[in-house]
Every structure is written in structure tokens, then in C-alpha cells.
Design a protein around this nucleic acid. Structure first.
Length: 454
RNA sequence: GUGAUUGUAGCUCAGCUGGUUAGAGCGCUGGUUUGUGGCACCAGAGGUCGCCGGUUCGAACCCGGUCUUUCACCCCA
């Protein structure tokens, strides 16, 4: 007999976890729908050609590839073997598991461009797979909840993203968090302002580590990446700036970027987003302007978001931004959009660590019908049917066992009420309804039972 | 990919410098109680010590490998 086990980085979700996960997923889904997004699902697997080359070399390494069916070696020659794994791969695998939801979405938009009405607002809640090494808040199979709008440049979308984040976190009861915002144009402006135009990529990679490795190490890394001493010294004010709020941050950067039109444009967009948010009745609560925030620089071109929960040592729980050319790689240029994603698994971890889940299991049945013998079982079956018709989540204990065991079952499963059906109940056409929490018990009619529980 | 770390009963963990029948708490099953759970008491079941190999008279313990857990780096949700 073999011991069963789970692949590395994957998890089972039991009834309690599923009830909690569904609470999070339903909250996110309802919010997306409330804001006019419609649901899309795509296959777990995509053609490998769709996936490769979209996430950089490192990303390609993290793709799960699916071995071809049948004789997967039939196209492989001895020379292929010598040429190494990279040359072999396309001959033995033509499909892979999706790595994120953005690329499949781009593929979908391109394939359905003639049917879609733009601006197109879609949301997608599905698992993705990455052959990463698991650790805290990082799994090989996890859910992403993406919402994107394509085909509009309006900053209304950005403002609505902030609203949706407020709404979701509010409903989940997560209070201590921050929404860091920045704009890619600001980063471009910064690199211009220090005389290193076009090098915002390496600049951000280095600066991003400021919290972790400290100022000196960042400067060292910048030197290694070919930044001059003069440029690095021009960065000093940014390291030292401690703007108290969003407006102060904008003011500070306005001075720093006065020579850079593109940088100033980025600041304007941020301010405009804030104005739209206000006119939508939203607030800038939790929003912080972090002008060093980088994130997935490869394709973001405008706003950048990242949400972090405080009090829990875990990566970001949500993030996103605006991109100008989502579908260019698939031969459909000029489709701009903005999107963001909630990381359900990390939100779950945060809520668990903060003790934010409610004690009661909302998925448990409300009523268990218990019995002493075959006669009681028959009587209870009739009650069961009536209770279910009335919409009460109910079940009948299936075996003829001791009352003790039946009560124990209800208690452990989190069922609040037990309806006991014995001879005296049959005689008087009642049910002995026991409240397990208080231990109180009363003889009531079927009608009263339904009234009480529905 | 780099560097650590973990693995003993269903769960959480003890187990001394290698030495006889590997323990505890909780949980589980049954009983005290044949129409009533939680509390108490009593009894009982349950372990190839992750796996493979090596050292040794002898390995849960030492060595090598492998898988697994957790964590950091890289990167990311």
C-alpha cells in the first residue's frame, strides 16, 4: 500500500477552508459585478507558444509544461538530445498550464476582437500554476482574481480600482492596509531628472530593495548597473523624502520633476485619478503615493498599484496597473487597458493570521434529524423533506445508532439544532427541537419548526 | 536556480553521550448512562520512527543519498 501525498506547493481545502475561501471569493466577485465587470473563464492549459516569451526568461522557467500524449519521443532525434533541454522542449511538449490570467485574457481579446464591444470589462477568477519554490504566501497552485478594462484611456478605471479595493477589504474586515500607487511616467521622469534617461528599468529594480538592503547597498547596486556618481547623488532627495500624505508627495515630486514633461504628466494623472475618485464619492483613505514603487515594469505604462496588509509578513495581496499594449505580441497593437488582481490565497493567510474569520461555519446545515429506531427514522424522513422544501439546510442521520452519537455528530459538524424523532413525537405529531448551544429543548410542531429556522 | 530547515500515533510534540517491550497530551472507539452531546471517571485501539543505502554486536539517534515541510534570496499573488 502506498502512502498518499500531495504535489509540492499544492493544498486541499476542507469544508471549513472552503466556506472561508468562498466568503472571500464571493465578496470579490460581487464587487466586480457591481462595477460592471463580466466573467470570463479560459482553459487551464494553453498552447506553449501562447505562454512562452511573455514573462521573461525567469518566467519561462516557472511554466509547468505538459508532456505530449502518446509517444512523446517520436519527434525527438539523437541530435535534439545533445542540443539540450531548451531545444528538446518544443518536440515533447506543446501545451502548458496557465501562469497568470492576463496573457490568456490578451489571447481571448485578440481571438474575439470582432465580437467584443469596447471598452471591454471582464473579470476572471481561476487558479494559475507556477513551478516556483513554495514558501510563506507562495504556492504552486493559487487563485488570481483579475479585473481588467481594455479599450479606454479614461482614468475613471483607475479611480474605480481604488473604490473596489476599498469595498472588498472593507467587507472582509481588513482595516490595516495601504494601497501604494505610482505612475510609470513618474519613474521615467525620475530617470530623466537624474540624467539617466531610459534606464528606469534597472533603476527601479535597485530602488525597490531600499527597505530590504538599505541605502548604501542600493547605491552600490546602481553603480554596478552603470549609473554615474552624479546621477546617484541626484537621487538623494528621493531617499530622504518623507511626504506625509498623497498631496505632499505630489508637491515634492513636482519640484523634482520640473524639467521632465513626461514625469509631470504622470503626476497629473495621479491627481486627476484622485479628483475622479472624490467625485465618485470615494476617499483617498489607505492610499499612499509611493514614487519608488516599481512592479512588473515590463508592460505597465501608466498607473501602478500595490496593496499590502499591515501586521502580517507576507507579500502584496493585490496589485495591478495600466498598460498601453496588452495584445501587441499577438498581432493586435494599440489595445490599452488597466487591470488589477486580488491574491485570494494571501488574503486568506492574512485574515487567518489576524483572526478575521467568523467563528460560525455558515456552510453547516441548520438542522439534524435524529431518531431512535426505524419508526422514528421514517417519521423524520417526512420532516426532512418538509424542512428542505421550506429552504432549511437539513439532514437526517442515516444510520440507526445511539442518540449520543447522533448529537455528537451534530455538535462536531457545527449544526446548531437537532430535531429528535421518537415514539412520543410521532404520537403527538411534534418534534423535540434541541438547541445544542444552550441545551434547551422544546416540543414543537412542524410549522413552528419551519418558522423558527427559516 | 542559491542557502538553510523539518520529518516519531489521526493532531501537537517528548525520546539523554547509539543499548532491551518507542512515550505524553489531545483526539478516536467502547463503557459508567437501552430517549439526549459538551463535564467527570474507567477501559481499549492505534507507530514499517519519511524512504533507500551505509557504519555498528546493536540505529528513532551517527554518515550518504532521496523525497517532504518550513523559511530566506531571486522573483512574484
Amino acid at each position: 500500500m502506498q502512502k498518499p501525498s500531495l504535489p509540492k506547493g499544492t493544498r486541499d481545502f476542507g469544508p471549513v477552508q472552503m466556506a472561508r475561501r468562498n466568503f472571500i471569493l464571493d465578496t470579490i466577485k460581487e464587487t466586480f459585478q457591481l462595477f460592471g465587470y463580466q466573467q470570463l473563464e479560459t482553459p487551464a492549459m494553453e498552447n506553449l507558444s501562447t505562454l512562452t516569451g511573455k514573462y521573461g526568461d525567469e518566467g519561462d522557467q516557472l511554466l509547468f509544461k505538459i508532456l505530449n500524449s502518446g509517444d512523446f519521443l517520436k519527434n525527438v532525434s539523437p541530435e535534439d538530445l545533445e542540443n539540450g533541454p531548451a531545444a528538446m522542449l518544443p518536440k515533447v511538449s506543446e501545451k502548458g498550464l496557465r501562469y497568470d490570467l492576463t496573457v490568456p485574457f490578451a489571447r481571448y481579446v485578440v481571438m474575439n476582437r470582432h465580437e467584443l464591444t469596447f471598452p471591454f470589462k471582464r473579470f476572471q477568477i481561476q487558479p494559475v500554476w507556477r513551478a516556483d519554490r513554495p514558501q510563506k504566501g507562495r504556492y504552486r497552485e493559487f487563485y488570481q482574481c483579475d479585473a481588467d478594462v481594455v479599450g479606454t484611456d479614461s482614468l475613471l478605471c483607475e479611480a474605480e480600482i481604488i473604490l473596489m479595493i476599498h469595498q472588498v477589504f472593507g467587507k472582509l474586515g481588513i482595516q490595516d492596509y495601504s494601497i501604494k500607487v505610482n505612475n510609470r511616467k513618474v519613474l521615467t521622469g525620475i530617470s530623466e531628472a537624474i540624467g539617466e534617461a531610459g534606464k528606469e528599468g534597472p533603476l527601479c529594480v535597485a530602488i525597490d530593495k531600499l527597505d530590504k538592503i538599505g541605502k548604501e547597498k542600493v547605491e552600490e547596486e546602481l553603480k554596478q548597473r552603470g549609473f554615474g556618481d552624479e546621477s546617484i547623488s541626484k537621487l538623494q532627495p528621493l531617499f530622504e523624502a518623507q511626504p506625509g500624505n498623497f498631496q505632499e508627495g505630489i508637491q515634492f515630486l513636482r519640484g523634482f520633476l520640473e524639467e521632465s514633461p513626461i514625469g509631470l504628466k504622470g503626476l497629473e494623472e495621479l491627481e486627476e485619478t484622485s479628483r475622479i475618485l472624490a467625485s465618485l464619492g470615494g476617499s483617498m483613505d489607505h492610499v499612499a503615493f509611493d514614487f519608488l514603487l516599481a512592479r512588473g515594469l515590463s508592460y505597465y505604462t501608466g498607473a501602478i498599484f500595490e496593496v499590502k496588509a499591515h501586521g502580517v509578513k507576507i507579500g502584496s495581496v493585490s496589485g495591478g496597473g495600466r498598460y498601453d499594449d496588452l495584445t501587441g505580441v499577438f498581432g493586435m497593437p494599440g489595445v490599452s487597458g488597466v487591470g488589477f488582481s486580488f491574491g485570494v490565497d494571501r488574503i486568506y493567510d492574512v485574515m487567518e493570521e489576524l483572526g478575521l474569520f467568523s467563528e460560525s461555519d455558515l456552510s453547516a446545515p441548520q438542522l439534524l434529524l435524529a431518531h431512535f429506531d426505524e419508526k422514528g427514522f421514517q417519521y423524520a424522513a417526512g420532516i426532512l423533506s418538509a424542512a428542505r422544501t421550506a429552504g432549511i439546510r437539513a439532514e437526517l442521520y442515516p444510520d440507526l445508532v445511539k442518540m449520543k452519537k447522533q448529537l455528537d455528530y451534530a455538535s462536531k459538524k457545527g449544526i446548531p439544532y437537532v430535531g429528535i424523532c421518537g415514539d412520543s413525537e410521532i404520537e403527538t405529531q411534534t418534534i423535540a427541537l434541541k438547541d445544542l448551544a444552550s441545551g434547551e429543548q422544546s416540543q414543537i410542531s412542524l410549522k413552528e419548526l419551519i418558522k423558527k429556522l427559516s
